[in-house]
Write a protein that binds this DNA or RNA. Sequence first.
DNA 1: CATGAATGAGTATTCATTCAT
DNA 2: TATGAATGAATACTCATTCAT
Lengths: 224, 224, 224, 224
Amino acid sequence: MIFIVRIIKDPEERKEEIINAAEELFIAKGYENTSVNDIVAKVGVAKGLFYYYFKAKEEILNAISQKYIQYITGKIKKIVENEEANAIEKIHRILETIINQFGLQGKGIKRLAGLFNREKNMAIHSRLATKMAAEISPYFVSIIKQGVRENLFKTEHPEFIADTLLMWAVSLHNTIKIPIGSGSEIKLAAQAAEEMIERILGAKPGSLNLLKYFKSISDELSSF
Amino acid sequence: MIFIVRIIKDPEERKEEIINAAEELFIAKGYENTSVNDIVAKVGVAKGLFYYYFKAKEEILNAISQKYIQYITGKIKKIVENEEANAIEKIHRILETIINQFGLQGKGIKRLAGLFNREKNMAIHSRLATKMAAEISPYFVSIIKQGVRENLFKTEHPEFIADTLLMWAVSLHNTIKIPIGSGSEIKLAAQAAEEMIERILGAKPGSLNLLKYFKSISDELSSF
Amino acid sequence: MIFIVRIIKDPEERKEEIINAAEELFIAKGYENTSVNDIVAKVGVAKGLFYYYFKAKEEILNAISQKYIQYITGKIKKIVENEEANAIEKIHRILETIINQFGLQGKGIKRLAGLFNREKNMAIHSRLATKMAAEISPYFVSIIKQGVRENLFKTEHPEFIADTLLMWAVSLHNTIKIPIGSGSEIKLAAQAAEEMIERILGAKPGSLNLLKYFKSISDELSSF
Amino acid sequence: MIFIVRIIKDPEERKEEIINAAEELFIAKGYENTSVNDIVAKVGVAKGLFYYYFKAKEEILNAISQKYIQYITGKIKKIVENEEANAIEKIHRILETIINQFGLQGKGIKRLAGLFNREKNMAIHSRLATKMAAEISPYFVSIIKQGVRENLFKTEHPEFIADTLLMWAVSLHNTIKIPIGSGSEIKLAAQAAEEMIERILGAKPGSLNLLKYFKSISDELSSF
DNA sequence: CATGAATGAGTATTCATTCAT
DNA sequence: TATGAATGAATACTCATTCAT
């Protein structure tokens, strides 16, 4: 005699369960190489249930994207709009947020990076990055303009600069030789990055003081 | 009696024929959406022949990449190593080369852009860009160092800057809102870009004088 | 606090509601292309309720068939059994009924035709037609026999003829090139049909006088 | 060690092999209930091969239809066009052909009847019947006209009559209560059919003399 | 060098039906 | 009566790759 247990869960919970399983598989194997079969097997439910919650495989991608975008832009929006702080301080806050608090479900920035890293996920990456950049860009522009007003930055093209920096940030993991190994190398890269950003923003050398944040990010990423 | 005509060609010629057919299809439909069947049908040969020349479908991607990389790095290498010119002039030469002479098989930069543009080809793009950047980077570094020696640029991180600029150039078409329409918009974007590059390189404002090149590129791309 | 409204209806009413929704969908999309999901969505109830009323999807087909068969045979039975009229007049009455009063739910013959017309519903059609023919056949036989007694018809095989004519009527819309366009074409077809029926029944040429009815039917059908 | 034998056959032969397997399965289980899997399993080839020869499952239906239509219309065409015989004799020839020689691959009329009989194949049936009727109709018209010229038939609507008789023949197996059992019943039905056809054609009673052919067909069909 | 028939694992998706609540 | 989450078998179709000729 076989008992088939039918576990019924709250729809929201189930949906999240499926999203999380899918996300983990996408990170591990790439979107294309993850079949709907894999996903339902991981959750331990029947195939039909996937299509009860999502109209198509692709739809789950949007769900994942949306999750990240909402989370991150929510944080940034708050910082930019509500805080009493100058432009540089706001940038610091944002970096802190990204580093320390990004931890969606306690998995941190690694999760996002993982989703992006694999060549197989380039299509997702591109899509997500584009959407994210579009969402975040206005806040960056706002900070840059504030910095210009506060005489911390100097530029007449805040929109262009915002986009460029975002682009740069977004494609960092892609093209740069991730500095693995000696701490001095990391330090050098961080110095260079800081110098470049300051120059782009027209900020005084050393005024941004971003090194400590870069270090935290490096540490997280290099622990893969 | 039936005569079956079997056209035997020089291996190198056949290989190129296949590569070119594949490339055109990848541009038109994306890598994933192009089947081996499509490729051999376009060339007019049997399926088996594809696997005589290429171990796998993926291998043809490398062949295509290689073609572009060799062509472009060859040109750049020549300019950097052989020409008697200062750093800024060399940059001008490279831009000219890219714009005017890139025309592989008379299709010009559009071909490359087409191969890159579609979201479906993101995987190729990423791969190609990474390889290309790695090949070209040393030449950029060399130019930047020369510029520093000539007091045209000012930086202590030429490698980092070279990579950053390459990355930026490579992902331009991806993330930036391509300025279509009013010439003034294009001009503004070009000015902003020039300012940013000059700042990154530590060059004097206006010394790079890149505007005309940006314009040519815009023209080419906007004519799609 | 959330209030979930659960509308409880009289079982018979609910059942009819479901049957009607199903019927409309079958007409619009065909039986195979209509899912149980579609049906319950249209009614606005949960999936489970469908299976409370019907053991299987197929069962609803029988319900629909039954509805039509009962309605039509009821009318015909009345005419054949109760009316004081000769055979030809009874045939006229039946045709009138079919044309003027068939209107189940005010949609008339079109509804039935719609259910039959689509190739996708061939299976239903065949089933319904067979059942209907079997039900109606005895009444036709009765009329033919009456006509023979009245010297209006002449045949020794009333059963066979009844079946043949029914079959013919039922498959009319299937195989015949529906005469669309010129009225003269329609008229010709009608004349031919009348001649054929008269011959089959052994009636005097022109005695049946069916042309006006054929015209009405043509008009209805061609207004699709 | 496992040896996987790859049997390569002449394409035409393979295609026929697949068509025949498909046809047998359609007869046995109906089109919808026959999966591509079933077909390739029966032939003993890989699934891909099916799609090498047929673009889609539906395409094989057309192939089967075509086979029958070509065969039958070929025979009829010959009889109608080439033979020196009067209209009634030609009808006899056609019936003979259908009964005695239809045997495509020695399976005879049963095969065709099987393909038609199941309710599940109604869609196919309808399609095939329509096509066939359209092909054959002109030859019937030609015979009827000839009969009129020869004073054997009498009608002014040969096209209408041809279609009606075809329709009737085609749907015979569908709606009629197949007379199983006593020979006298069969005989009666045959007499009735003959009488009806003669009347429809306006032929003299008894002139068609079709009884023997009807008997043969009954015998074949009742042996299922 | 060249052919093209043959392979078969893999994919997303549908849907009638069940059942715990 | 009514809900709707859960099931899972079934399906058509794709395509990179192999290999006998």
